[in-house]
């Protein structure tokens, strides 16, 4: 187990290293000039050149990359070009809000998705199943900003049940969590449905019925644990999906998280901040996958961590 964990952490570090390299090159190739952004439109070419020089943007790519990497290894993510602050402190100030939103959205999507999947599988090919599958189809296809604005309009503006935006109380979490979790709920409901149907047709269910067990017990003790196995691996991968959703949802609901930070940084070519946010998201995805792989053997005794 320990050697497995060490190996996985080592692999994770390699993946993150690869991500820093790819992101760095992509941003370097960007046609926009960050020095021009900093100096402003009216600045002279000389000022721009000075800024370029100060930021070290004239150095060769690998020198810049090496500088960034050594800084990163010492916990220094650089300074924002436009805000007078360290990138790490900018992110640290906003990360808790985003993480809390993400956890609450994951819980939301699992509750909605798995429930719909189980119910649809047990009522398969009947009206309830068809209705739920149409719902999941809509959840998958509707753009998140549309859902977000729709929910805001109905439940915050018209009904006034939830605050219109901002961050603070539990009530603030409801609409953003649903907006962010609905897409995943759509996917999970479909996956859970087909996984449940597959398990329902397996011999072990026939054995459970031959034992004289109640339907409730067969479904909760025999079918659901087996059906959920393929879903666990998905949750780890899913965090990547969240990262893209979080940018949209945070700006719709005015949520002070790293999604907003990223959005502002991209608009203004604030490269150190973009790099920082990318690294944080990548780390979240890698940790998510690692957790999913560590949890799987706890549920499925056939999987050995080796």
């Amino acid at each position: 187990m320990t050697s497995y964990l060490i190996r996985r952490l080592f692999e994770s570090a390699l993946i993150l290293l690869g991500i820093t390299f790819v992101t760095f090159i992509l941003l370097y190739l960007l046609p926009a000039d960050p020095a021009r952004q900093i100096a402003g439109r009216s600045a002279t070419a000389e000022t721009v050149a000075n800024i370029r020089d100060q930021l070290g943007l004239n150095d060769p790519l690998f020198v810049q990359y090496w500088r960034y990497l050594t800084g990163l290894l010492q916990g220094d993510m650089g300074r924002s070009y436009l805000q007078r602050a360290e990138v790490s402190s900018l992110i640290a100030a906003r990360l808790p809000a985003s993480l809390m939103l993400m956890v609450s959205a994951i819980v939301t999507e699992l509750i909605i998705g798995l429930t719909i999947g189980v119910v649809a599988a047990l009522r398969r090919n009947r009206p309830a199943d068809h209705g739920l599958m149409i719902f999941s189809f809509v959840a998958i296809s509707a753009p998140q900003f549309v859902i977000g604005i729709l929910l805001l309009y109905v439940f915050a503006v018209q009904l006034g049940w939830f605050p219109i935006g901002g961050y603070g109380t539990p009530a603030h979490f409801v609409l953003p969590s649903i907006t962010l979790g609905l897409l995943g709920a759509g996917w999970y409901s479909r996956m859970m449905r087909s996984s449940m149907i597959e398990v329902l047709n397996q011999d072990l269910v026939r054995t459970a019925r031959a034992k004289g067990l109640s339907k409730m017990r067969i479904v909760t003790r025999h079918v659901m644990p087996n059906a959920i196995l393929p879903i666990i691996a998905m949750i780890g991968i899913d965090i990547g999906l969240f990262m893209s959703g979080i940018v949209v949802v945070e700006s719709v609901f005015g949520w002070p998280g790293i999604g907003q930070l990223a959005w502002q940084a991209i608009q203004r070519v604030d490269i150190p901040v973009i790099m920082g946010v990318t690294m944080v998201s990548a780390t979240a995805i890698v940790i998510g996958n690692l957790l999913a792989d560590l949890v799987a053997p706890l549920i499925d005794p056939r999987i050995k961590t080796k």
């Binding site: 011999d203 072990l204 054995t207 031959a210 034992k211 004289g212 025999h222 087996n226 005794p301 056939r302």
Partner: peptide
């Protein structure tokens, strides 16, 4: 039927590989 199954009539199947629950 639940009171009959296993209590009065029990059954064993062809595939012992798949007839048991792998997670229990």
């Amino acid at each position: 039927y639940r009171k009959i199954r296993s209590a009065r009539i029990a059954m064993i199947f062809q595939e012992p590989m798949t007839s048991l629950n792998p997670l229990m």
